[in-house]
Structure formats: structure tokens, C-alpha cells
């Protein structure tokens, strides 16, 4: 027990001082921030996709709304991009309600396919909007004007901002997990019919989860914009953005608090490093390796990497 506690403290310490460890290498410093950003969006997805079992493949809608809310705050209102984050979150909650009401009644794969369609719909429409910069996209402040533009050379400030957001999100998720809502969501995931017969208003709780998830996905989009300073329909609303959230959460372990973080810890460095070492040849090897590793993990650990720990726990209890 104490051994485990020491391990946990050690892990927390590593997470807190990581930017100092990576201080010599801006690339690894940035990698840390990118892992956290990936973990934020995948953890946000996890609320509805993992806990409530509603596999949305259209979450890029909210990611894009967040990014565009930020960039338009700058372009049209001359505010720092981060000022758009609350607007984006609010808008995402409303859009989630509008999407959720018709689609959440669909079961299983039908829901997934409907969210893909909605995502593509929003992507196509966004590319025809002049307000959103059309297909060309919009750029944030080219040169940081004040600190509030959150445009830094070093990745360290991003790292701590993202870490704070992730901790808040995971804290909230943990709280939900243990609340009545968490219990309802698990019931809905196991068997919606059974949950309903027990008097759980499944539609209402699914919608709550969807809206909450949308708000945080949108925040991830706003943070992305602050870091990269540019958004276009493909990098905001593209289907790959949605799929990556699903894959990250599923790889680590969907419906578990730290699942998406573990997924991000594996996938983001894998993506960046394989691109760094193999991408320059132009032979497509980056994705051959990336795809193969995902296939192997899915083949041997279909419930995600965290199921490895679960198994050990079960074995230990059996002892």
C-alpha cells in the first residue's frame, strides 16, 4: 500500500516538474504540452463516449467551435483569443443540445454514424462562411500583443495551463463518477432498457453528459488555437479530429478516469516521433507504424491499456 502511494507521489512529481526535465529540448517540452492537450479533448469525449457509452464520432464540431470562437474573438472583436473560450463553451453546450436531442435517441452505431454526418455537415458549412474565413481559415495574432494572447515561444506556460485544465476536468469527472449521475450513466451504458425500467430518465442524463463533454472539448479547441494560432475547416471540424479523440480514449481505456490520459501518453508521442524519424522519407512509413501499433494494441487489449492493470488487480484479489 505504501509502495503504491510512493509510486503515485513520484508520478505526480514527474508530471509537475516535466518542463524542467525537458528544459533543454523545446521539442520534448512541446511534446508534453501536446500530450496534455490531447488528453483534455479525449477526457472530455470520455464523459459521453466512455461513461455514457454514446460513441460520438462528431466531437470535432465542438473542438472547432472552440477554436473558431477564439479566433473570431480576435479577428472580429480584437480580443485576446482566450476570451473566446467561454463563448465557445456556451455555444458548444447549445449546439450539443441541438444535436443531442435528435441523435441521442439512436442506438449504437446509428448514433456514431449520425454524429459523423453532423460533423461533416458542419465542416462543409464552415468552409462556405466568410465570417469564419471560409476554406482558407483564420489566423490568430501573428505577433503577441499582450501576455493575454497566450502566444509563447516556450511550451512551458502551455504545459501548465493545459495541466491545470486537465486536472480540473479529471476532478470534475471523478466527482461525476461517484455522484448519482455517474451511477445513472453506467446503468445506461450497461443496458439502456434496464435503466429506463428503473426509472432513470436516460435521455436527460445522456444529454447532460453530451453537453458537459461538448463544453470541455470546446475549451480544448480554444487552447489549441492559442498554441497554434491558426484554424481552418479541416483542422477544426475534420473527421480525423473526432476519430483521434475516440482512438485515444479507447486505446487507454474508455469509461475510466485516466484512460484518455494514458491513450494520449502513448499516441501523441508515437505520432510525433514516428513522423520525426520516418516522415521525411516521404514513403508513408509514419502511418504504417502508427497504424500497426494501434492494431496490435486493439488485438491484444481490446478494452484498452488500462485493462492490463485491471487484470493484475483481479489476480491480486484472487490471491
Amino acid at each position: 500500500m505504501t509502495g503504491r502511494r510512493i509510486l503515485h507521489l513520484l508520478l505526480i512529481a514527474v508530471v509537475l516538474v516535466y518542463p524542467l526535465i525537458a528544459a533543454d529540448s523545446p521539442v520534448y517540452g512541446r511534446l508534453g504540452a501536446l500530450v496534455l492537450l490531447g488528453a483534455i479533448s479525449a477526457s472530455a469525449w470520455n464523459i459521453v463516449g466512455g461513461y455514457a457509452g454514446q460513441v460520438s464520432i462528431g466531437h470535432a464540431v465542438f473542438f472547432g467551435i472552440g477554436a473558431y470562437a477564439s479566433v473570431t474573438s480576435f479577428v472580429h472583436l480584437d480580443l485576446p483569443p482566450i476570451a473566446g473560450a467561454p463563448i465557445g463553451m456556451l455555444l458548444s453546450v447549445l449546439v450539443a443540445a441541438a444535436i443531442g436531442v435528435p441523435t441521442l435517441r439512436l442506438s449504437g452505431h446509428y448514433f456514431s454514424m449520425a454524429t459523423i454526418a453532423v460533423g461533416e455537415l458542419v465542416r462543409v458549412l464552415s468552409s462556405t462562411s466568410d465570417f469564419l474565413g471560409g476554406a482558407q481559415g483564420l489566423g490568430g495574432p501573428a505577433m503577441p500583443r499582450t501576455m493575454f494572447d497566450l502566444s509563447f515561444v516556450s511550451a512551458t506556460p502551455y504545459y501548465y495551463i493545459f495541466l491545470a485544465v486537465l486536472v480540473a476536468l479529471l476532478g470534475l469527472t471523478h466527482w461525476i463518477e461517484r455522484s448519482r449521475m455517474g451511477f445513472y450513466l453506467r446503468a445506461i451504458k450497461d443496458s439502456e432498457r434496464a435503466a429506463r425500467s428503473l426509472g432513470v430518465s436516460s435521455g436527460r442524463y445522456k444529454l447532460y453528459a453530451f453537453m458537459l463533454s461538448a463544453a470541455f472539448t470546446s475549451l480544448a479547441g480554444s487552447l489549441y488555437l492559442c498554441m497554434f494560432g491558426f484554424i481552418d475547416p479541416e483542422s477544426g471540424f475534420g473527421i480525423l479530429i473526432s476519430v483521434k479523440m475516440v482512438v485515444m480514449a479507447a486505446l487507454g481505456g474508455a469509461g475510466q478516469l485516466f484512460g484518455p490520459l494514458v491513450g494520449a501518453l502513448i499516441l501523441v508521442p508515437l505520432e510525433e516521433l514516428s513522423n520525426s524519424y520516418l516522415g521525411g522519407q516521404g514513403a508513408g512509413l509514419t502511418f504504417v507504424v502508427y497504424g500497426a501499433i494501434i492494431v496490435i494494441i486493439a488485438r491484444f487489449l481490446p478494452s484498452g491499456l488500462l485493462s492490463l492493470l485491471e487484470r493484475r488487480k483481479v489476480v491480486r484479489r484472487a490471491d
Binding site: 491558426f230 484554424i231 481552418d232 513522423n275 516522415g279 521525411g280 522519407q281 509514419t286
Partner: peptide, 8 residues
Amino acid sequence: VADNQGAP
């Protein structure tokens, strides 16, 4: 040479 993967 580095690959931008068509992504900003």
C-alpha cells in the same frame, strides 16, 4: 526534410 502531413 520533414512531413507536415497536410496539417497546420
